[in-house]
Design a protein around this nucleic acid. Structure first.
Lengths: 221, 221
DNA sequence: GATACCAGTTTGGGATACCAAGCTGGTATC
DNA sequence: GATACCAGCTTGGTATCCCAAACTGGTATC
């Protein structure tokens, strides 16, 4: 694997894993020494991560993208548009057996499953559901949206109840798609996304002092 | 302006203007000498254009993205999802005066307007309409889709009648938005996108021999 | 004490040298 | 004549060097 891909992957993991906090400054030299690569692949990786929205230019330098509450609201609208379109396509397919793989993925999470895994499955559910549509652009849009949401969701304080509710909503969406009920699937998905956004924004808004205390830049809605 | 932006902009214009044909191979050294920049900004520009879908990796090298008829169909579905979402948002705004700027843009095209200008306005109509929604992600999605459609639309054989019809459909969509009729706007826009796709794919499919004769790679649907 | 200024350092942008992988054209062998 | 093979060239990947701009810390001046 090339150095650029190495740096890109590792840096993305550090950002998404909050090992580098939202709003933190990045210098090409620091990354270079941190990952043992020269500046050429480092700069290539930065350019790619910039298009993912994980880092942003800060004047002449680079900054890890802050958590932006207004952006979360816009992403929810965007998600609804593309995810609903994707699920409508999928519900209209003759062969909807791909659904079962996603259902199995959901069921693989149990009481003893680590929180990290719940988080990953919660994101992958939406990505895999979009993939079933067969539309590359809808898939990419969903993947991009989930990447941008990833850190915020990780910071969200989620209790058992919220996790269980999301799990149930995911299954309800799958059930509607399974029986080919596009309208129901679209309605359930839209409600799920709106509810998810509300919980997310409320949680982060309430906790913004704590987040800032941890050194995380949080931009208000 | 930085060298990277220079190279990126000029290379994008050459690709979109079909000065470099779809499917053509690109080498970093050729670009370097062509634009008088060194490989560092050239590589940065290539990485950015790759994310726009205008160029793609071809094994170890670079290739100008071919015209892909299957992709055009997928883009139409994607466009419908995001553009309809955007126009619904716009129709729900209190202040919809931005509409008039777009209407003026349409009206600036007359019988003596060069074909190039019609082309640009036809793309910008959709982008500016999405911008009015105020949602950055929907705007970016539409802009990205129109960029990917640009070359295909330029190759489309369009007669006066088709241009006039598109112009009328654009105005009809604006009228629906102006009176706040989200349902009508969504319906008209969806029909416009579907019709546009049909004409585009049919035209390119019928002309694919001619396009290939010009050295343009055309991937079948 | 505040401020204007200056030298030193840091940083991203760019240019270039080097390398390994892969391709090409020619050649020698059968 | 076909094929295996090899030298040389091309090309993207990487490392490194230079530069100008911006930042930093300290100092001198008022």
């Amino acid at each position: 694997m090339s150095q650029m891909q190495n740096v890109e992957r590792q840096l993305r993991e550090m950002i998404l894993g909050l090992e580098i906090g939202p709003g933190e400054r990045l210098t090409e030299r620091w990354i270079e020494s941190r990952f043992g690569a020269s500046r050429t692949p480092v700069r290539a990786a930065l350019l790619r991560l910039e298009t993912e929205g994980l880092i942003a230019r800060d004047g002449r330098g680079w900054t890890v993208a802050p958590i932006n509450l207004a952006e979360l609201g816009q992403i929810a609208v965007y998600r609804e548009a593309v995810e609903v379109a994707a699920v409508r396509l999928t519900a209209a397919l003759e062969d909807r057996s791909g659904i079962e793989v996603i259902a199995a993925m959901l069921d693989s999470c149990g009481a003893e499953t680590p929180r990290e895994e719940w988080h990953r499955v919660g994101l992958d559910f939406h990505i895999e559901l979009a993939r079933l549509s067969g539309n590359e652009f809808l898939l990419r849009a969903v993947r991009d949206a989930m990447t941008r949401l990833s850190r915020a969701r990780w910071l969200e304080v989620r209790d058992e109840k919220a996790l269980g509710r999301a799990w149930a909503e995911h299954h309800a969406i799958l059930a509607a798609v399974r029986r080919g009920d596009a309208e129901a699937a679209a309605r359930l998905l839209a409600a799920h996304i709106a509810g998810s956004r509300d919980r997310l924004v409320t949680s982060l808004h309430d906790d913004r002092r704590g987040l800032r205390a941890r050194g995380f830049a949080v931009v208000a809605a």
